[in-house]
Design a protein around this nucleic acid. Structure first.
Lengths: 378, 378
DNA sequence: GCGGCGTTTGAAAGCGTTTACACAGACTGC
DNA sequence: GCAGTCTGTGTAAACGCTTTCAAACGCCGC
């Protein structure tokens, strides 16, 4: 085994053709006659030739790599998106460079810079709100990079595509459901809203639904917490110790909701008998919480796949890629029910449930457990 | 805004120096006098210069990128590892290329090839068992790439480093705990073992602990299922319908365990009163399952960080990176208890628990809920 | 048989960096 | 003052590939 790497020149020599031909065999095989193609392939296999990506990228002026920046991979909802993104990109022949920004604007800017320097042919971002430095970097970049914004209903710039869902509408539907069950004292544990249009939209949706029936949403019923289970727990305890505690708690995501669930129960209260709780994301485990969590199903994997298709198509070309608005249905489960003292509504135990009213086709009754839970990842 | 990208030559011209000096300013600043350095920096900023990663990699013969291949990102335990890996690599100035292989040998081989072609300076793999084609690719590669194997106790090759934990020992401790509670009819729902040394080691650990007290582990008490919640559910139903159903079920990971939990309860049985269940991974939600899941805490993030340090250090050099064996403690929670009909042991309800015996410092009593649950991700 | 055309191949010019290597000064020690 | 060191900077040759351009080679119809 020689110590020098095998280059395209070695292959050319072994196959007795020019380097140009070898290059063509790998990049545009149909330009080469079958006989030569076989000879070159054979030589390449024999020598164990591996093309040098850097040289290839330098010469062709495209890296066939896509960059993605998520707030964190430590939330399964983002991991699911990235997993799907990577798989689909792979099918298109693109590699994936990934970075996490930890909900930190400066860090995100740095990561964008790093990815652009690495010559990515496209960029996937989460959410529409990004520091202006991020946009400046992207716009300055030659050749232009296609950008896809996910998780949000609409892009803040016309130059980028958007593959997301309507956070506001989803939150609204969630609260409509609670209102319909008879709740009036509805509190929200929101995620941090600064620089986070998704968190903001969810608050806006809750507020909108409430104000439609003449209820205002304000502290202490509205509280903002980091997206962690313990924070959800702590926030729930505060809410339930108010003089007029809420009968329902809407959470900014499933982590907060899981914490809230635990918080409620730690006070000896029952969910949903004493307090209803709902979340946002529909993590795999939401359906297996106890009680199973009513939440909004975020189309994470689908966004990843679409973003991949979109970026692969747009890479190289200059037109901005296409946009899509996906469904984010409310999954009705056992963690929401009528408020205490409310005369029983049409809701029966999950096992024998009568179909609840469908609202715009996006309210779903979901089994709380194994029979209908989402198939879990491996 | 010009249409041609800004190159190092433009910066050199603007700063009235040679391109070599510009390059030095960015790569070995201490070789350049402060005055020039400032002038170059200034020119670069003014022009919005972004270095071309491909050219850089080609000339310097190192990409400053690391590749990682995991079975899937859709399991939070791998996502957590990758998240930590990326963050730490970032600190070292490396980018991360990621790929998932979906427990498929051919796909893994392809991904390794892709990553090597992209010129990664190092590779992180999960597990020690990989198709020989993978090793062939890696060994043929010039210059040599450092490889770190995670999740396993020892590497199958001396040329690669290993940063993992002892799956077998952890599984053994889990079963020792069950034996000590008085269980004798202990079943296992394992993950798919072919080509998966971790899954195999876990089975081996369970078998070892059992055979130490004269119990054999064999079908139907040993069953192999894909790592999904529904599979855990289905497998549990089968086990509990046996003429002699087990009093405890050990699962290959937390997904299977969560499914088993649901399966047990769907039969109207109680966990842990009628059946004990335990898992492996300690996902964030394990502590919030109901009852909270006894499981093995896998040091996913720590493996990611160590792998990053290790690879960053080894990149370029030829010596294989260092090896580490991490702790994987058993987290005792509410899903395990004495078998039915067994006279009460020293175990009291979680709240007033007397410390269980510590075995080699790796059996931990963990709070079932919020007070001690792991801080959840954002 | 020859101009014209389409197809296949080769020669060579980059792609934007890094990095020997050479070289010019500014110091040293004598 | 002058050989010998350092330091800091510039020159130019890679790095391994893609791609343009032109040449070579049929093949057709006249």
């Amino acid at each position: 085994m020689s110590t020098a790497p095998v280059t395209i020149r070695d292959v050319a020599k072994a196959a007795q053709v020019s380097v140009a031909t070898v290059s063509r065999v790998f990049n545009r095989p149909n330009l080469v006659t079958a006989a030569l193609r076989a000879r070159v392939q054979d030589a390449a296999d024999r020598l164990g030739y591996l093309a040098d990506g850097a040289a290839r990228a330098l010469a062709s002026r495209r890296s066939r790599a896509i960059g993605a920046i998520v707030p964190t991979l430590d939330n399964p909802v983002f991991a699911a998106c990235i997993d799907a993104l990577q798989q689909r990109l792979d099918e298109h022949g693109f590699a994936l460079l990934i970075a996490s920004a930890g909900y930190d604007a400066a860090r995100e800017t740095r990561e964008v810079r790093v990815l652009l320097e690495r010559g990515v042919d496209g960029l996937m971002l989460v959410g529409a709100d990004h520091p202006s430095a991020v946009w400046a970097l992207i716009e300055r970049r030659r050749p232009a990079v296609p950008v896809v914004v996910t998780w949000s209903g609409e892009a803040s710039r016309s130059t980028v595509a958007c593959i997301g869902f309507d956070n506001r509408a989803a939150a609204r539907r969630l609260v409509d459901h609670l209102l319909q069950l008879g709740h009036r004292r509805i509190a929200m544990i929101a995620g941090p809203t600064t620089g986070n249009d998704r968190a903001m939209a969810r608050v806006a949706g809750v507020r909108e639904a409430l104000s439609a029936v003449g209820i205002a949403l304000a502290p202490p019923y509205l509280t903002e917490r980091p997206y962690t289970v313990p924070d959800g727990h702590a926030a729930a305890l505060v809410l339930l110790s108010l003089p007029e505690p809420p009968t329902a708690i809407v959470c900014g995501n499933d982590h907060l909701a899981l914490g809230a669930l635990a918080g409620v129960r730690s006070l000896g209260l029952s969910v949903p008998h004493d307090v209803s709780v709902c979340g946002f994301d529909d993590l795999d485990f939401a359906a297996y919480a106890s009680p199973p969590l009513t939440t909004v199903r975020v189309p994470a994997a689908e966004m990843g796949r679409r973003a991949a298709d979109c970026l692969a198509a747009a890479a190289g070309r200059t037109e901005p890629p296409a946009t899509a608005l996906l469904e984010a249905p409310v999954m009705l489960r056992g963690s929401t029910g009528p408020p205490p003292g409310h005369r029983a509504t049409a809701r029966a135990p999950a096992a024998t449930v009568t179909r609840p009213p469908r609202r715009r086709g996006t309210l779903r009754r979901a089994g709380g457990g194994p029979t209908e839970g989402p198939s879990a990842p491996r």
